[in-house]
């Protein structure tokens, strides 16, 4: 899976949670939860969905690394490769 495929997956999963928003418009450094108005429950659902889709585990202490598109991409790339 390359970087753009991962990005597509992220966008797709965010779209499921916030259907009325367009995640492709998110800035690289923007806080995803704040920008898309996602509460803690949906944030957890997003992480669950990421784990299931990419077949990885994201431990709780790493949640902080999933805050922006940039940090999330970096984190996931390391995880997958």
């Amino acid at each position: 899976m390359n970087k753009s495929e991962i990005l597509n997956t992220i966008h797709e999963l965010l779209k499921n949670i916030a259907p009325e928003m367009d995640p492709t418009l998110l800035g690289q450094e923007e806080n995803i939860r704040e920008a898309l108005n996602i509460d803690s429950y949906d944030a957890l659902q997003f992480i669950v969905a990421l784990c299931e889709k990419l077949k990885i585990d994201i431990p709780e202490q790493d949640y902080g690394k999933t805050a922006t598109i940039k940090s999330l991409l970096t984190y996931l790339e390391k995880k997958i490769i």
């Binding site: 803690s40 429950y41 957890l44 992480i47 669950v48 784990c51 299931e52 585990d57 994201i58 431990p59 709780e60 202490q61």
Partner: peptide, 17 residues
């Protein structure tokens, strides 16, 4: 919570709520 969640798969993790 952190302790409890560290032993759980992501689907079973607890929220502070």
């Amino acid at each position: 919570l952190k302790e409890a969640n560290s032993e759980r798969p992501v689907q079973k993790r607890l929220l502070p709520a």
